[in-house]
Simulated assay, not measured.
Amino acid sequence: MLTRFAVAPSGFKESLSAQAAAEAIAAGVRRVVPDAEVDLIPLVDGGEGTAAALAAATGGRLVALPATGPVGERVGTHFALIDRDTAVVEMAAVAGLSLVPRTLRDPGATTTYGVGELIRAALDTGVRRILVGCGDSGTSDGGAGALQALGARLLTERGYELPRGGRELHRLDRIDTTGLDPRLKDVELQVACNPFNVLCGERGVARVFGPQKGATPEQVEELSAGLDRWAYVLERDLAVSGLREGPGTGASGGLGAGLAALGARLLPRFDVLLDHLDLDARLARADLVVTAEGALDHQTPRGKVPAEVARRAKQYGRPVLALAGTIGEGAHQVHATGVDAYSSILPAPVTLPEALGRGAEFLTDATERALRMVLLGTQLTELSPSGA
């Protein structure tokens, strides 16, 4: 009999936080196994909810402040102080896709300027380490806005300041770093990112993620050309290398490359983030591991939460069930990561607004359905002669 469950989902973009998803799954589990021992392990991948989750896991605190949002307007945002020496800046909290109104989804215009403002605010606290979580971005400016907020001047051929936004990068002629915040030299800047995301090339971030942020095919090519120019000028003027296709350089619309040019270390996000959660030990104690994300498809094995959970769970021989808002092309590839079974949470075709608005309800119901099937299979195995 299954009695111990590890519930380790990511958030469902624009619908459920990781915490809310974990609670919805737990509710479905308890419909079937009322006395279940359910360990809620909401997971973050650097995107939405990262700062709050790490603050909660470490006994830290959130620092609230206003900053420049992705479309240029001031938004309420935050960063986390997780110990005396470490701050966590979540780029999605100030430049995430959820902060871009659907009518304004133009990744050529959005900016990471607010990310730089949060880094400056973290520097004001005197920390020695700043961890920047990348994910769920609404930008494609290569981190240019963040560098501008930190004091770098991005100049055209005539010496004018470059306007914000990725579509302007093709006009970049040179970078003046004389006004760069000098405190950056005294802190360790780490970027928790997906190493599969690169800045340029056929798998460059504009081509892979630009359409999700509202880019037309023409805009994708425009953004790709701008990021090519951005990488060239960064490498030339800041004396760095490997920005075009280095692991993680495409994180959050290229923010990884911009921060790497300032000396940041680009680190695999799960190696950085999950150490605070004792994840492996908690998975090892479970009879069944349930994970989830908004979309299960060919991208999932490339550094998404369900694939990482399954990989770790399989080290201890634990079965893994994955639930998703949508099942996309290539979803079957998740079996190779250790996912034993997967299912969509949608009970029938619904509109996108309805799917987003009823995410918790659908996830709870889907968990119940899936778990009843799991238990039926267990009973049939026990009844069969070969299962004796």
Rank of each mutant, 00 (worst) to 15 (best):
S15N: 08
I25A: 10
R30G: 12
D35G: 05
V38H: 01
D39P: 00
L40S: 03
I41T: 07
P42H: 14
T50S: 11
T50G: 13
A52Y: 07
A55C: 11
A56C: 02
A56M: 06
A56P: 02
T58E: 09
G60V: 13
L62N: 09
T68C: 07
G69I: 11
V75Q: 03
T77E: 01
D85K: 12
V89L: 09
V100R: 01
D106K: 01
D106T: 01
G108P: 06
T112Q: 03
G116P: 07
E117H: 10
L118V: 14
I130W: 06
I130G: 08
L131R: 14
G133H: 06
G138T: 03
G138F: 07
D141M: 01
A144F: 05
A144N: 03
L150D: 04
R153N: 07
L154W: 02
L154V: 04
T156W: 08
T156N: 03
P163K: 05
G165M: 08
H170G: 12
R171V: 02
R174H: 01
T177W: 00
T177I: 02
T178M: 00
L180N: 01
P182V: 02
K185A: 14
K185S: 13
E188N: 11
C200W: 02
C200I: 04
R203F: 11
G204C: 09
A206Q: 06
P211L: 11
Q212R: 04
V220R: 07
E221A: 14
E221L: 10
L223W: 06
L234E: 07
V240M: 04
G242Y: 03
L243K: 04
S252T: 04
G256C: 12
A261R: 06
R269Y: 08
D275L: 15
D280M: 10
A284Q: 11
R285D: 07
T291E: 08
K304M: 06
A313L: 08
P319T: 12
H332M: 00
G338W: 04
A341W: 07
Y342F: 15
V374M: 05
V374R: 03
G377H: 11
S386L: 13
